[in-house]
């Protein structure tokens, strides 16, 4: 392996600094006792306190977390069952069609997903708000879960299921005691991805949220349009740490799974 020269190192360092500087800048000023992102007066938790004293913001925070957890759960269940079904489709053409349909929502721009879901909910008579946001988030997370679970299912040898059948396992036993434990790492990965997709989403939610209901992203957007407020910085700080925890959690879970997988 050739060593990098100074110029290359400097370039890489610059890329990393540019990638992280804005995020750290944002979090740094959330501790500013002043009222703008310009001169740092002194260290304070006041803006965080403000967030936790604002009951409206608390409700929005709770909404965001509930939507993320529920939508990830729904997406994981439907996605996992779907993947188990997909691998048992014998007709290759049919299976490829299903997989292409699966990927449509992944490659579609958010605006189009948002706009088309808005039409869908209006036509179906579903009131815009909690329900429409929950359904949208579950809907755009399902294909990701499928993409995470499918490789695990492909890895699994079918003789495991034959063996279970021979030993007299019922259909339910096979699902809960053979298939699900085997693909568990994929399911967890899918759940985490769905969580972050939901927490991250702004565009789709913005379209289907209606008037009374708001998630963090949408709220930050309307606050940011009104101008800089360090409350938004404090919110950012919170979101940043939660994201970091999720990424780390995801990283360690997949790490542990691969290690325990290696033990077998």
């Amino acid at each position: 392996m050739e060593k990098l020269n100074k110029r290359s190192k400097l370039y890489l360092a610059l890329v990393f600094v540019i990638l992280y500087a804005p995020i750290l800048f944002l979090v740094f000023y959330s501790f500013n006792s002043g009222d703008s992102m310009t001169n740092f007066k002194s260290f304070t938790f006041a803006h965080y306190k403000e967030v936790f004293q604002d009951s409206r913001l608390i409700v929005i925070l709770i909404n965001t977390v509930v939507i993320a957890l529920l939508s990830a759960l729904i997406a994981t269940i439907i996605g996992t069952l779907g993947s188990i079904g997909i691998v048992s489709i014998k007709n290759r053409k049919m299976r490829n069609t299903v997989l292409s349909l699966n990927n449509i929502l992944i490659v579609s721009p958010d605006v189009i997903i948002g706009a088309s879901f808005l039409i869908l909910f209006t036509m179906a008579g579903i009131k815009l708000g909690f329900m429409s946001v929950l359904l949208s988030h579950a809907a755009f997370s399902i294909p990701i879960v499928v993409l995470m679970v499918l490789p695990k299912l492909h890895e699994m040898s079918s003789s495991l299921i034959d063996a279970a059948l021979d030993l007299g396992a019922s259909r339910r036993d096979i699902l809960t005691r053979v298939i699900l434990p085997y693909v568990k790492p994929g399911i967890f990965a899918g759940f985490f991805m769905a969580l972050t997709y939901s927490l991250d989403d702004f565009a789709v939610t913005f379209f289907v949220t209606g008037n009374g209901f708001s998630t963090l992203s949408v709220e930050i957007y309307s606050m940011a349009r009104a101008g800089v407020s360090l409350t938004v910085n404090a919110l950012s700080g919170l979101v940043f740490f939660v994201t970091l925890l999720l990424v780390l959690g995801y990283y360690f879970i997949t790490k542990r799974q691969t290690r325990s997988g290696a033990h077998k």
Binding site: P22, I23, F25, L26, T196, L199, D200, F202, L216, S217, I220, Y221, A224, V232, S236, V239, F240, T243, L246, V247
Partner: peptide, 11 residues
């Protein structure tokens, strides 16, 4: 993985 909106707001 950090919310797109926050990065934009930082700028």
């Amino acid at each position: 993985w950090i919310n797109l909106l926050l990065k934009t707001y930082a700028f």
